[in-house]
Structure formats: C-alpha cells, structure tokens
Nucleic acid binder design. Structure first.
Length: 432
RNA sequence: UCCCCUGUAGCUCAGCUGGUAGAGCGGGUGGCUGUUAACCACUAGGUCGGCAGUUCGAGUCUGUCCGGGGGAGCCA
C-alpha cells in the first residue's frame, strides 16, 4: 500500500492508498462516520461506512479522541461535496497513538491567553497553518528577490556589544568575563561594514527589543529583513523597497491563494499594490494632517493614529520621508536641502497597518557622524569600528529594515503580529 | 512608567438598581447512512483571581495585590 500525502491525493483517484496523520474532528452518524484528517500538507475527509469498512476498524472509531494519530487506508474518490474535491472511503484504520486526555483546543472560540498558552498545539489549527505557510512563502520570496538581484547574504551577529539604536532597550546576557553582551536589535551597522566589502548585502534574522510595548504591532523577538547598498541614495533605496514589496505581494497572491482564503483575506486591496508608491515629505504630511483635522506640531514624530489617517488617504503603501533630525537615529544622513531633517523614509502599509519598513541614507562623513554620536552621548569606544568605515573609502550608502511579522500581518489581513510567528515572545510570555 | 478594559464550569461568555449561580461548546450515556464548528435527548461539572472592608446579606459595591488584554511612549 502506497503512503501518500493529502496534498497529492487528487493524483490517486480510483486507487487504494494509505494516509498518515491526525484526526482533527469526527462526525459520526451511527452507521456512517466522517473522519477529518490532516497531515501537514492538507486536510481531507475520510468516510467510514459500517459494512464497507473493516469491522474492527469501524468499532475503533468510537474510542478515538481528537488529535489521535492514525494511519488510514482507503479508496480515493472524487466527490463534489468535499471542499477539496476528494474524499477517502476508509477500509482500515491503524491507531498510532490515541490520547487519554481531551484535546484542550476545542472547535469553538478561545481567548488569546489560552491559545498562546497552548501555542504548541494551536499550531495545528487551520488558521495558524495558513498564516505560517504564508510566512514560509514570504521568506522564500524575499530571499529569491535579493539573490536574483545579486545581493550577498551576510548573517550579522546576534550577540553584540553595546551598539545599535540607542533609544530602544537591549536584552543583556552575561558574556564570560567580558561583562555584558546584548542581543542584537538590528544588524544594520554590520551590514554597513559588509556593503563596503560586497556592494549589495542583506540579512534575515531575529532581532530583540526589550521595549515594554504591549500592542498588536510589537514582539520582543521578531524577524527583520535588512538590506544595505553602497553608492545608493535615499531615492534609490525607496525604488528598491517598492520593487521588493510588489514582488513579495505578487508571490503571495499567486502561491498562497488557498491560505488567503482560509484566512478570509479580501485580496482586492492587495491586487492594487503596484509600483508607484506615493512619497510624501514629513513636512508635507504635517500639512496634510492639519487639513485632515489631526494637527501635529512640526518636529514631533508621527504616532500610530497619524499614520493610520495618512495611509487611509491612499490605496498603496506610502513613504513618509525626511523626518526631523532629532526624531530619528544618529546614523541618518543630514538632508543637504534642510539640515533640520534627515534623508530617511518609513514605509507605511495601507488599511491602517502602519510602519513596515524603516530606512535611510546613512551619514557617510566621519566628522558629522562622530559629532552625532557625541550629541546622543553614545559610548564612543563601541562605535570605533563603525567610524572606521567612514575613514577608509567612505561612500554614500542606504539601507532599510523590513519587519517580517508586521508585513505578514498586513498581507494576511490579520490583526496582531503575534500570530505571524510560530512561537511569539511578548512582554508577558516566554512559554511555550 | 502611564491610561483604559478585563478575571464566573475544561473553553467562550451571560448574570440588570446587592437577595448565596446560568447558557453554548467540550466531557459522559443513548440515538441517527452524507455530516461540513453536524444534529437530537438525558447527564455530570463552580471556595465567582487572592486578601481585606461596607452590609442582615457581596459574583454584584469599596480598597488593595496578582494575572490577562488594548493603547500611549518607543519602534519593525
């Protein structure tokens, strides 16, 4: 008997096969029982009819608990009543392990605390499966995008000295007899070093922020895709980001139709994500917000509410550029046309999802950079190597970081970033 | 750190101006040959987050502590 995956079942209609998987629901009508099976590749209904199915097997069905692991043999059959188009007429059932306890996750709704406490089991649900399969595709798509363009993957360290964006809080760990090391909150500075060696580089890895943020947009551990390109100015960086986002959305739309359907995502807005994202200067955005009845004092950063109002004016993601210098990180290059601002761009996703990318042209002049480091009272010695990059063949360069979970949350139309990562880490959760 | 919401059965929740607890799902038993979160009948299951207070009487009001959620700040 050939063991096949559920996703391949349609190739075996009219044949007898074996399926190995888990029982996620049973509906029994006495002399006929419907077994809902999943194996990670898909879901299918097995139909066991008394008399047609092996008698011993039919008797076993009654004792099966939710999420029992079983192997089932039967005939693959086309059936218009089945959501996937095929069903399995069951001949025999082998029980691999039948739970003694009731499965904690029921078919009805659960609260988020309960679900997160059972994340190790929640992974099995169809929603989580869809979300994480989209995440998988997103990572493949992003990596392909950069590889096809000739970017070099540079994995940046996770254990670092005290370096990064000073404003955020760092997680610290004891590092032998060298005092504290910190979990990276960005790989950017290392990518800047790498782009002076390789020209165009990127990374994709975990980053850590010990911010006490409790919102639908924050995790303490999240994955970020960062890219850094030498001889690229801010405008060119936005071109690159735009192309990347369009390619990403395209790939999800074409490869994950089934998953988007499971999630109930209206794909209409996603289909409008094509090149030509509006680029709005910060000062212009402040004027727009004034007209829209949400005045912001020039110089203040834009908050979540402001971002939402701005994005609602457009169907595509928008870049908000050239923020006031003091609202942004020390490494951003001063805008030669207005020294009060820096050459940067945040990409705000539509439909109220807000910031998914933060990017900028980097300060490439030694004197300017060191004075910014001193202004911010950063530990100068930790930045010695970073300053070296401005001493030995400094060139204009730009880069950006894309929040993977935020991007997936937007594309899937989900409400919270914590479902876009297999095991979310939040301010109040380290288990499972 | 601050603001708002919340904690009642295994789960999701209801419980009005205070009068000592209820539903659906899940569990158990029985029924059903096409179910799609199946359905029908019966059934078991609770120190109402902890502590203190007001009151004849507290799930309900007050204080406090603890847990959880959302948001601000900060950021992707």
């Amino acid at each position: 008997m050939e063991w096949v995956y559920i996703s391949d079942l349609h190739k075996y209609t009219g044949q007898k096969v074996e399926i190995r998987g888990w029982l996620y629901n049973i509906r029994s009508k006495g002399k006929i029982a419907f077994l809902q099976l999943r194996d990670g590749t898909g879901r299918v209904q097995g139909v066991a009819v008394k008399g047609e199915c092996n008698d011993d097997a039919f008797l076993k069905i009654d004792g099966l608990k939710m999420e029992a692991s079983i192997s089932v043999t039967g005939d693959v059959r086309k059936d218009s009543r089945a959501p996937s188009g095929v069903e399995l007429t069951i001949n025999d059932i082998t029980v691999i392990q039948n739970p003694e306890e009731d499965y904690p996750i029921s078919k009805k709704e659960h609260g988020i605390d309960f679900l997160l406490e059972h994340r190790h089991l929640w992974l099995r649900s169809s929603r989580t499966e869809a979300l994480l399969k989209i995440r998988n595709q997103a990572v493949i798509s992003l990596r392909n995008f950069f590889h096809e363009k000739g970017f070099i993957l540079i994995d940046t360290p996770i254990l670092t000295g005290s370096i990064g964006e000073s404003s955020s809080t760092l997680f610290s760990v004891k590092y032998f007899d060298m005092g504290n090391a910190y979990l990276a909150q960005t790989g950017q500075l290392y990518l800047e070093a790498a782009c002076m060696a390789f020209g165009r580089v990127f990374n994709l890895g975990p980053t850590f922020r010990a911010e006490k943020s409790k919102t639908r947009r924050h995790l303490t551990e999240f994955w970020m895709l960062e890219a850094e390109v030498s001889f690229l100015e801010n405008e060119g960086s936005m071109d690159l980001q735009e192309e990347m986002i369009c390619s990403l959305v395209d790939s999800i739309l074409s490869k994950n139709e089934a998953e988007l359907k499971v999630l109930g995502r209206n794909t209409g807005p996603l289909k409008k994500i094509t090149a030509g994202f509006p680029r709005i200067e910060y000062s212009e955005a402040v004027k727009m917000l004034d007209k829209l009845g949400k005045p912001v004092k020039w110089g203040n950063d834009l908050g979540g509410d402001e971002e939402t109002i701005l994005t609602e004016q457009f169907e595509k993601p928008i870049f908000v550029t050239n923020y006031p210098k003091h609202a942004k990180a020390f490494y951003m290059k001063e805008n030669p046309e207005n020294p009060e601002t820096v050459l940067c761009a945040d990409l705000l996703a539509p439909e109220g999802y807000g910031e998914i990318i933060g990017g900028s042209q980097r300060e490439d002049r030694y004197d300017e950079l060191i004075s910014r480091i001193r202004e911010e009272q950063l530990p100068e010695s930790a930045y010695r190597w970073y300053l070296d990059l401005r001493k030995f063949g400094s060139v204009p360069h730009s880069g950006f970081g894309l929040g993977l979970e935020r991007t997936i949350t937007w594309i899937t139309g989900n409400k919270h970033v914590r479902e876009a990562i297999p095991f979310p880490r939040t301010i109040s959760r380290l288990y499972p």
